[in-house]
Design a protein around this nucleic acid. Structure first.
Lengths: 351, 351
DNA sequence: CTGAAAGCGCTTACAG
DNA sequence: CTGAAAGCGCTTACAG
């Protein structure tokens, strides 16, 4: 069943049928209804590829990432994708996932030239990545999850990573901690850098010199949380407060503390940034985990809307958002306890 | 840069350029090389939508699932998808993810009629699902992950779920257990049914009547593992061996046992089916977890190959596979210990 | 070995 | 309000 057949069946021209189906206003009401009825009865669906060729639009949004570090194993990425695809579906768009084998830049050029997708969602961009310049040169609209330094404007949605760590660090400071560690994400990711800077500035604002040994970078896995915590607690002067970049990391920290016989929420305070991932529930941890929070899935939803706006001609300036994060206080954070032999304590908290 | 421009640039007809680029044998070697060089120098990429319209093929494989139970939160699904997209990319195909809002059948019909995808990969099918009959009526090739009862042949890849539970149950029996529980997946999924049957048959083969209270069905989450274990251990005659449908579930069982003061590998034996998910490492659990194992990611890879074969005209009979599972013995399984007051023990194991 | 021509199934100025 | 015609950018019998 194609347009020609349908129009012959109706005794109308393909032109009119097409216009009726696409909601043009200059079609007689009666004609439109007749066409719509016939189309639905006969199960007519316009051939997507013909439509794409004729209009130059595919209603497909591309999401690509290098095969090497396959992001499909990262729950953060997945949950983002869940939000993106759900909202895209609600807006009649599909998501094309393309795992790129080798040269990312080359792959982007290819996608742009082939015309399979109307826009690209860029994820997990590294700092000092030339991919923005490259995309700038292509005619393909794109939006970035996160922000990286650039000479020109581009569409993005980011959370306030800097502010998250400022909030987290200040909370620890207010509780009386001075030895505050930051178990941060990968060193080459912009969100990790922003978080490290927030941590540094909050400490300096309180007159404390950030201790380099208290800043650790790495993939946000349970394993790394465990390793970092073990190493930090083995320092001559271990931190009393640990801020983790993810709840998954924090669960590794919890494991390390259990092994070391450290009581979380008294011997040591722990908090994390919570992307609200399914399967990881900070409120159910023992003790419940204090977090800064911003659902990554909601970011995916919003980015679907934004990228579709972009395709429809929205200005780049209207497609730039930075989301604040919430701070949710739970039992994993408390004033430090002063132990015999500990150089810095929370004496003022005992008054 | 389109075919017309390129061919004018070369002083050839679009026909010849197209044939040269698509590897037809009846193009002069010299011509082909000249065309290929120009195409790559000028960065020519055939417009995908035009190509699709002309050939009727999109090189896109569709994966769809209902929005409601968003499978993107399920690590099993994700890892499968990772394998699928990686292998598809290696074979020059893309993956289109389509989260279906309402009527699945309607959505399939739509996809088939629109021509966006060359084939569909069907996942998480329920028992008594009419989707197979529906797909049969469409001209769109499809392949199923898993098997469900059907009157006609269709392409599928499945693991031997029945055999997995037979193996697992027999292992427990050989160790001397008689009270063996099965913490199974959702009741309406065919793999759960196959596993339940394997469990039942292995027990009956050993002359033991399966205890209905020892069979539990539910989503394979940590939470459910925990709940099921708590409930099972609270029975008047609790099981001494627990077989879980996933490592995630087993981690919930571990948590329950810790809380109950039960030592895994002595007070109670635990094993699970291991889909080899990232982030869940049975060998690192404490104690290391005995598993039946079949990487779900590998299944995704193989299904990409199979579905592309199917598109290229392979017979359905050549696109049917059932994979055996490995049994990996670790410290979480051991003979039961006979306690005072326990009705059934492993006395013969102490000889 | 190469090219002119038709066709894939739509959309969209344009004319009436 | 409706229709004839051109065009989107490819592929592919077919003829030579």
């Amino acid at each position: 069943m194609n347009l020609k057949t349908l129009s012959e069946h109706l005794g109308l021209s393909p032109t009119t049928v097409s216009r009726a189906l696409n909601g043009y206003s200059d079609v007689a009401r009666e004609t439109r209804e007749r066409v719509e009825r016939a189309a639905s009865e006969l199960g007519y669906r316009p051939n997507a590829n013909a439509k794409r060729l004729a209009t130059g639009r595919s209603s497909i949004i591309g999401v690509s990432f290098p095969t090497g570090r396959n992001m499909l194993v990262d729950p953060h990425f997945i949950d983002f994708l869940a939000g993106l695809s759900e909202e895209a579906a609600a807006l009649d768009h599909d998501i094309l996932i393309s795992a790129i084998k080798d040269d990312v830049g080359e792959a982007y050029k290819r996608m742009a030239a082939k015309g399979t997708v109307d826009a690209l969602v860029l994820l997990g961009l590294h700092l000092n990545n030339d991919v923005l310049e490259l995309m700038q040169g292509l005619k393909l609209p794109f939006i970035v999850h996160g922000r990286i330094p650039s000479d020109f404007a581009y569409a993005y949605l980011d959370i306030d990573n800097h502010g998250a760590l400022v909030q987290a660090t200040r909370l620890m400071l207010q509780l009386g901690h001075t030895r505050i560690a930051n178990l941060d994400g990968p060193v080459n990711q912009s969100f990790s850098k922003a978080r490290a800077e927030g941590w540094r500035e909050a400490l300096q604002g309180a007159g404390i010199t950030p201790e380099p040994a208290y800043l650790r970078h790495g993939q946000m896995t349970e394993e790394n949380g465990y390793i970092f915590a073990r190493e930090l607690m083995a320092l001559p002067t271990p931190p009393t407060a640990l801020i983790c970049s993810s709840v998954i990391m924090a669960s590794g920290v919890y494991r390390a503390c259990r092994e070391l016989g450290l009581s979380i929420g008294s011997d040591v305070s722990v908090m994390a940034h919570d992307d609200d991932l399914p399967l990881f529930y900070p409120e159910r941890m023992d003790p419940p985990l204090t977090v800064t929070r911003s659902p990554i899935r909601a970011a995916g939803c919003e980015m679907a809307r934004m990228v579709i706006n972009l395709i429809n001609g929205a200005s780049i300036q209207d497609c730039q958002q930075v989301w604040p994060v919430d701070l949710i206080f739970r039992a994993s954070t408390a004033p430090p306890i002063s132990k015999p032999g500990s150089a810095v304590g929370g004496a003022e908290k005992n008054s």
